[in-house]
């Protein structure tokens, strides 16, 4: 267990193993994305109330779900950075932040487009929307903190601490619709009963899209992290060998 853990901390080992995983990840993602998008945007039955606009659901829900995964990931990686000083963990904190900001922005934008048609407004300061906007600003904060602090050890520590705040906010986002009354709906409970509301015809394409977007997140994170490894290890012998090989 500890051997595996310290191995994972080695940028060189991660670079090699992730290079082997990457084609498989991209392939699986493409399959899920192709089936998911086709199914969700062309074949899902129209909603009895919302009609066609309801298909935003299949973009908004996966993107919003995954944007809630960033701060937990960054908080855990940040804690590993603080405790074990593992270089790779800090690289993940650094590369996840801009990706998370994009995902959060996409969730907010797709939600707005959906909202203007169903609710009748682009924006409202309810608990869910406000806490999500707060997450966006926190991620922008992590990104600017990183570039503002030249001392990279200090930046790593500051970003790790801010990630813990972000993690707490994720809990607030998740339960905002239950704790307070909001314009945003409460979470949907899906059912296996095909004759009722929220049946398989609704959630199976949603599940495919969620897996696809999750894989997209993993692929992007791995690619950005590989890039970061090369930049930080540019003086190492194995990177020099890699460059001379190609």
């Amino acid at each position: 267990m500890w051997l595996w853990f310290s191995k994972l901390g080695s940028p060189k080992w991660f670079y090699e193993i992730s290079g082997r995983w990457l084609p498989w990840l991209v392939g699986t993602m493409s399959v899920f994305l192709l089936i998911g998008v086709t199914w969700a945007l062309l074949f899902v039955p129209q909603d009895y109330q919302q009609g066609l606009i309801n298909r935003v659901f299949y973009i908004h829900v996966p993107v919003a779900t995954i944007s809630l995964a960033f701060f937990p990931l960054m908080a855990v990686a940040g804690a590993i950075t603080l405790i074990w000083r593992m270089k790779l963990a800090d690289m993940v904190v650094k590369t996840a932040a801009p990706l998370g900001a994009w995902f959060t922005a996409l969730a907010l934008a797709s939600g707005s487009i959906w909202g203007v048609d169903t609710w009748g407004t682009w924006w409202i300061w309810d608990g869910r929307l406000t806490s999500m906007l707060f997450q966006f600003f926190l991620l922008i904060g992590v990104i600017s903190l990183r570039s503002a602090l030249e001392d990279s050890d200090g930046a790593a520590r500051a970003c790790a601490l801010l990630s813990i705040v972000g993690f707490i906010n994720v809990i607030v986002i998740k339960y905002s619709v239950d704790w307070w009354n909001t314009l945003h709906q409460v979470g949907t409970n899906f059912s296996t009963d095909s004759g009722g509301a929220n049946g398989p015809e609704i959630w199976v394409p949603l599940f495919l899209m969620t897996v696809a977007v999750y894989l997209f997140f993993v692929v992007s994170l791995v690619m950005y992290t590989r890039n970061e490894i090369l930049q930080r290890e540019r003086r190492a012998q194995w990177v020099a060998d890699l460059v001379s090989e190609s």
């Binding site: 009895y48 659901f57 169903t118 609710w119 009748g120 409202i124 409460v186 929220n198 609704i202």
Partner: peptide
């Protein structure tokens, strides 16, 4: 403003 609940289904259902 309109709110919608958390239930989605086709007109047939």
């Amino acid at each position: 403003l309109a709110r919608h609940d958390e239930n989605y289904m086709s007109p047939e259902v």
